[in-house]
Design a binder for these strands. Structure first.
Length: 899
RNA sequence: GCGAGGGUAGCCAAGCCUGGAAACGGCGGCGGACUCAAGAUCCGCUCCUGUAGAGGUCCAAGGGUUCAAAUCCCUUCCCUCGCACCA
């Protein structure tokens, strides 16, 4: 992509221009928003993780919000468009280890680097609202909020299974677990094994107590409220629905041997009469109890607990020797422990109905258990239709073999059985509580102290923040090794006590950062409740699809809780409109990656072409949510466009364009300018920047043709350039300023008013008329093979034909309707013939009245003149030759070409 | 398996919600203007046929609704993404 030969001649030098305008914006405080602004437009991009590396995904993400924020600002709105740094997290610890530094210094250096790059890109943020999550000024509020959640009863300590490296003796995050080859295969299936990233030792799982936020308390609202998030993409709503995973069902108790009652959960209570065995998850307390007495069960449970999730298939399981009583039939059914029953789904216990569930069916076949049909498709169904011995019938239907309940529909039975079998309706969720403990250094310390006598005690508010100690290089958790930091007096009893050494999941940081921007300096609260309640919700949120579930769900959860504890007032959802930008692919259409070597560095593009070219190309390439492939030709095209519009403006400003008088062409151009402004505005509003930019390109191209065709009217020409500059400015802000300056604009274009946006009346109909007429002329010239047309005459149809069309559009029976009209009768045969012609047409387009049609063609005549180097005469029906005029129709002038 | 979104000319891609003109635009290709020349810029063409604005074929495939379908409905095929041993 490097230019061969000498440097191309450039109309302006982006290397000089861009920094100058960046400084000017800064100087003028363009992007600052006052604290007393009322309900500003809140435009937000997901803040970046501070890797130090700006990639094309960032550039795209931030160009989208920046362009939109600039657009709204030019429209006169107050705009809040802040930026911050998601700066806690494991990668910083790794980088610190690799580079023999500490996470803080590394992160701060990354932030400086990225901030510089953002400025270079021309992104306009209110830097006074910058938020950095790894600073105590920010994370103290994580700690304070943790205590608020605790007070609201939303914090629990629960056991959780963690990855454990027996060699390093440390907990591993999921990201630190790699697929590796084990020295010897424990199960002999040849599959991959999870190993520690550092020492390649196969990992264990350990159950450890962790801090949890009980997001499940909000499962129902989080799910229901999704339906009202109309500004969210379908797939994200769907992904959250899946994640929350609501199941409507019922629970019923089964008597299991001497172990008492065991609750099961089922969505198919209607099939209870067909339950022929009972099954417990290996982790179920009763299964554990049985394991203590029964060697075979114990072995199975141990094996199942060690095995990887997908290692065992559906038929894996062991008979316990116990029996459960089916409350529906009174029958004793065998109790199994089976791995396909999951401990954390439902109650971890179920009754199995092989006739009506695929997994139960497979299991029953393998273990030779009865298969008893209790549902059939319909009351009068042919018994041959289905054979549950062969395959489970899983649809709803009508009950059979269910005693007195035969004939009930599945739905009726589900309703009735809840009472009959003394069960209860239950709604289960897939959503689990949110474990926020991380055994890492680079995160927010959890503000708890453990005392032998008092148990867990909160760090008092006056001792907040609990700041991180100096980083300790160690294989385990550095906070555990920070002896001095760790040991404190118990706030309650004063005895020796130990700090919690886990830190918070970084998703806590990002669950409320959008609130901190509202009042970033506030010292006695995480954010100003009144202002936040006014400024929220975020009007436009843009970021990657990878955050569809976790971040976006946690942020919704936080918002609801904060509203419930009155830190917010009436804000139930954080983000009204959400856009997930598509990926920027490599030139070959593959994902950009180091290993494929198809990455394009933003830095290099900025250097070679300038930030505006990068921004323009990205925005022209596709709608924000669609992916697109990087293309050197596309970059070149965007770059050329910027150079060209500058060159044209420059020539205008330098007086190199000879000007003439106003006239028909100026009228035509003036209408196009208005139409362009209207179209671009609409497209910006709809987030379809590529369409808006297309309109701008077309306008600039028109101005060029205008200049070539004639000596343009100075005022019209200037208005065209000004409009183009303004419409372009949100996407290519530096060039926008440069153009604005050349055009003697007042102040900065970033603060200038948006062009008024009304399309001329009937613009579309007129455009259609002009385009069709031009096309027809081309068609004729082409098919007839006219070498050098001299005069092209266009004749507009007479008024009466317009009347005929108007009548025809309304009438069922066109010819009589027309001929009954007294006015039209005077045209005799001609009117009748025309009416007949129209009667045969399915659809009659809208058309302009004859005088306006005439005016439109007169305005557009220059285009035809230019294209064919011929004189163009536009005539009314009266002026035209009778023979010619008779061929004209409304919306379709008669054409005569002389050569 | 369940769910969401797609399949438009050589390539990218708009139009589909709200049916009405072979279907915007970009890239690439072809021809022309300007120029000693190159680049840049500008103009036109880019499904087939056609000596006056016409005809034909066409928006994954097949069927349907309609005066009229890229657009609405049904079926099938293919792609992408998400969830999934969820009781």
């Amino acid at each position: 992509m490097t230019t061969t030969g000498e440097e191309r001649e450039r109309a302006f030098d982006h290397g000089e221009v861009e920094p100058r305008w960046q400084a000017a914006w800064d100087e003028a405080d363009v992007f600052r928003i006052d604290d007393d602004a009322t309900d500003p437009e809140y435009v937000l991009a997901m803040f970046p993780y501070t890797s130090g590396q700006l990639h094309m995904g960032h550039v795209r993400n931030y160009t989208i919000t920046d362009a939109f924020a600039r657009f709204e600002r030019m429209r006169g709105k107050d705009v809040l468009h802040p930026m911050g740094w998601d700066s806690f997290g494991l990668p910083a610890e790794n980088a610190a280890e690799e580079r023999d530094t500490n996470p803080r210094d590394w992160t701060m250096q990354c932030i400086d680097q990225m901030r510089d790059q953002f400025v270079e890109m021309g992104f306009g943020y209110d830097w006074e609202r910058e938020v950095t999550t790894c600073e105590p000024e920010y994370y103290q509020w994580n700690q304070w909020l943790f205590k608020q959640f605790r007070e609201a009863g939303l914090v629990e300590r629960q056991g959780a299974e963690l990855n454990w490296c027996p060699s390093c003796e440390t907990v591993l995050a999921d990201e630190q677990v790699e697929e590796g080859e084990a020295p010897e295969e424990p199960h002999g299936d040849g599959g991959a094994v999870e190993v520690c990233w550092r020492c390649d030792t196969p990992i264990d799982h350990r159950e450890m107590d962790q801090w949890f936020l009980t997001i499940t308390d909000y499962a129902e609202e989080l799910l229901d409220a999704l339906d009202d998030l109309d500004g969210w993409p379908n797939n994200v709503q769907e992904m959250q629905r899946n994640w929350i995973g609501q199941q409507e069902g019922a629970s019923v108790a089964f008597e299991v041997g001497e172990y008492g009652e065991v609750d099961i959960f089922t969505t198919r209570l209607d099939t209870i009469h067909g339950a022929t065995y009972f099954s417990l998850a290996p982790g179920h307390p009763v299964a554990q109890e049985i394991a203590e007495e029964n060697d075979e069960v114990r072995e199975y449970v141990e094996m199942a607990e060690e095995a990887d999730e997908d290692d065992l298939d559906v038929t894996s399981g062991v008979f316990t020797g116990e029996y459960a009583t089916n409350p529906a039939t009174g029958e004793e059914i065998p109790v199994y422990v089976a791995d396909y029953v999951l401990t954390d789904v439902g109650t971890g216990a179920l009754y199995a109905v092989p006739a009506h569930d695929d997994r139960d069916h497979e299991f029953a076949e393998y273990h030779d258990i009865d298969i008893q049909q209790v549902v059939e498709p319909a009351p009068d169904a042919d018994p041959e239709d289905i054979d549950v011995q062969e395959e489970a019938y899983t649809e709803d239907g009508v009950l059979v073999n269910s005693g007195e309940f035969d004939g009930l529909t599945s739905a009726e039975a589900r309703e009735e059985f809840v009472e009959v079998f003394d069960g209860e309706h239950r709604t289960e969720y897939n959503l689990r509580d949110w474990g926020i403990s991380r055994q890492r250094y680079w995160g927010t310390p959890i503000p708890m102290i453990h005392c032998e006598d008092c148990g867990y005690v909160e760090v008092p508010d006056e001792d907040l923040p609990v700041e991180l100690p100096e980083f300790v290089h160690t294989t385990g958790n550095p906070l555990d090794a920070a002896e001095e930091w760790k040991h404190v007096d118990c706030p309650d009893c004063g005895a020796d006590a130990v700090r919690e050494t886990d830190t918070m999941d970084t998703f806590v940081d990002s669950s409320w950062y959008f609130l901190r921007y509202v009042s970033p300096e506030l010292e006695d609260a995480p954010f100003d409740t009144e202002r936040a309640s006014d400024w929220m919700p975020v009007d436009r949120y843009v970021g990657g699809i990878e955050h569809a579930v976790m971040h976006l769900l946690y942020a919704r959860f936080f918002t609801k809780v904060l509203d419930d504890v009155d830190l917010l007032d009436g804000v139930r959802e954080p983000f009204v409109n959400l856009t997930n930008q598509g990926m920027v692919l490599g030139e070959n259409g593959n994902k950009m990656s180091k290993s494929k070597g198809n990455g394009v560095s933003p830095q290099r593009i900025i250097e070679e072409y300038g930030a505006d070219t990068a921004r323009l190309f990205i925005m022209e390439a596709a709608q924000p949510e669609k992916e697109f492939a990087w293309s050197p030709e596309g970059v070149q095209s965007s770059h050329s466009f910027l150079q060209n519009i500058y060159r044209l403006t420059d020539e205008f400003a330098d007086g190199k364009i000879a000007f003439g008088d106003e006239g028909q062409i100026a009228d035509y151009v003036a209408r196009e300018i208005d139409a362009t402004a209207a179209r671009a505005t609409e497209e910006y509003e709809k987030f379809r920047f590529n369409h808006a930019l297309q309109a701008v390109r077309e306008l600039v191209s028109l101005l060029r043709r205008y200049r070539e065709a004639t000596d343009p009217d100075a005022e019209t020409f200037e208005r065209g350039l000004v409009t183009a500059a303004k419409l372009l400015a949100p996407v290519a802000p530096h060039v926008g300023e440069e153009l604005w300056e050349r055009l003697d604009g007042e102040g900065l274009v970033a603060e200038a008013g948006w062009p008024s946006a009304d399309a001329p009346a009937d613009y579309d109909i007129e455009r259609r008329l002009v385009e069709n007429t031009r096309e027809d002329v081309r068609d004729i010239v082409d098919t007839v093979g006219i070498e050098d047309p001299e005069t092209i005459t266009l004749a507009v149809a007479p008024a009466w034909k317009h009347d005929v069309v108007d009548i025809a559009r309304e009438a069922d029976n066109v010819v009589p309707a027309v001929m009954q009209n007294e006015e039209l009768q005077q045209y005799g045969e001609a009117a009748a013939d025309f009416a007949k012609t129209l009667a045969g047409r399915a659809n009659l387009d809208e058309h302009l009245p004859p005088e306006r049609e005439l005016a439109a063609l007169v305005r557009a005549a220059w285009l035809v003149e230019r294209e064919f180097s011929a004189d163009v005469v536009v005539e009314s029906a009266d002026e035209a030759d009778d023979g010619l005029a008779s061929k004209a129709e409304p919306g379709r002038p008669a054409i005569d070409i002389e050569s």
